[in-house]
């Protein structure tokens, strides 16, 4: 019985310390100021949609002083007429830099170079425990128009658990841990919003609307910053502006036809490069490619669309061996492809 007594004393001390802690830190920054500052790092995104139950808006967060915006990869981005509205009401047409198909994230860039934007620092990561109080900032229901700040909901982290969810009939790709919260954080339009702690530090990115595969109820959750920060860094690096296409293209370039695969019809500005079909006996089939695979990388460069894939192939000689990464059932699969194909292997 001695140990529990000591434990109790220790806990009591901890409790007092945490109360003191709360007093001191919040005395420095009132919650309303924390919220106001966080709101300036969250943007409203307007794009495709507008049909029944397909909202034409979502949310994003600024992650660099030069105006990189991280958001959820969704149909909203499938338009040439995408607009990002900043907290101050300014509207910009962003550049689409790339996406992370597993976490369903997309990276956009504001077309501004000479300005330093308020942003969340992904390198300086904060984490939270079950029971911690959190704030969810987003453009849910598209309520905030013009220069109105995004909405803020409060709650606590109720679980940190693997995401087991579906969208419609399909299971979601991401299966790792997420922060589950008791705030109604993931309403229509909230995807891409920020989950922050009471100091305004980014804990995670609000996910897309999904339902639990077990209970069928809507989930309120966020992807922890740690789960996507390295992927986002790769996206940022993959978009090294120093990269330039080769000055001379090969005489005979690779084509999808030569590889024996057909992409889905290219109907959107950024059609995800899914395979529609694989020809029997083709190099693609021998390499193990299948219909419905999503091509993510070719030769180490990220591929965001059908168009980008076709362009990338033109840089490669038809005899060249290329490494292709693809997404299948939530798993990343890497294969090597060669058009002449005798030695293709997985």
């Amino acid at each position: 019985m001695i140990l529990p007594k000591k434990l109790t004393t220790l806990l009591a001390t901890l409790v007092v310390m945490s109360v003191v802690d709360m007093f001191s830190c919040a005395a420095e920054t009132p919650l309303s100021d924390v919220i106001r500052s966080a709101q300036t790092k969250v943007v409203k995104i307007f794009g495709a949609g507008g049909l029944k139950q397909l909202e034409a808006y979502q949310t994003g967060i600024l992650i660099s002083p030069s105006g990189h915006v991280l958001t959820a990869r969704s149909y909203v981005l499938d338009t040439d007429d995408l607009a990002i509205v900043l907290d101050d009401g300014r509207s910009f047409k962003p550049e689409y830099l790339g996406s992370d198909p597993i976490r369903e994230l997309a990276l956009l860039k504001l077309p501004i170079e000479d300005e330093s934007f308020p942003h969340f620092d992904l390198q300086n990561q904060a984490t939270a425990q079950v029971g911690d109080r959190v704030l969810a900032l987003s453009n849910l229901y598209g309520i905030a128009t013009g220069d109105e700040p995004v909405s803020v909901l409060q709650g606590a982290i109720t679980a940190i658990a693997p995401l087991d969810a579906r969208r419609g009939a399909f299971a979601t790709v991401y299966r790792d841990n997420v922060y589950v919260v008791d705030a109604y954080a993931n309403n229509p339009g909230a995807a891409g919003g920020a989950l922050v702690d009471w100091q305004g530090r980014l804990l995670g990115l609000l996910g897309k609307e999904v339902k639990s595969r077990v209970t069928g109820t809507w989930l309120n959750y966020a992807l922890p910053t740690a789960s996507f920060s390295s992927s986002v860094n790769e996206l940022l690096a993959g978009h090294d502006t120093t990269w330039e296409p080769p000055s001379q293209l090969p005489e005979q370039s690779l084509t999808t036809e030569r590889l024996g695969m057909r992409l889905v019809p290219d109907v959107l500005p950024i059609t995800p490069p899914y395979l529609d079909a694989v020809r029997t006996g083709s190099p693609a089939e021998k390499a193990g490619l299948r219909a419905d695979d999503l091509i993510v990388f070719v030769g180490g460069r990220q591929i965001a669309s059908c168009r980008a894939l076709l362009e990338e192939l033109t840089y490669h000689d038809e005899r060249e061996e290329i490494e292709v990464s693809l997404l299948r059932d939530g798993e990343l699969v890497v294969v090597t492809l060669q058009a002449e194909g005798e030695h293709a292997e997985e």
Partner: peptide, 30 residues
């Protein structure tokens, strides 16, 4: 502001007490 703080403080005390099952002995100001 003080009030928000103190609410928060109280919440933490309550939460931790519940979580650990330790006897609750909150500060009088709470």
């Amino acid at each position: 502001m003080i009030r928000i703080l103190t609410h928060l403080g109280f919440f933490c005390v309550a939460l931790q007490s519940v979580a650990t099952g330790a006897p609750t002995n909150p500060a009088p100001e709470l």
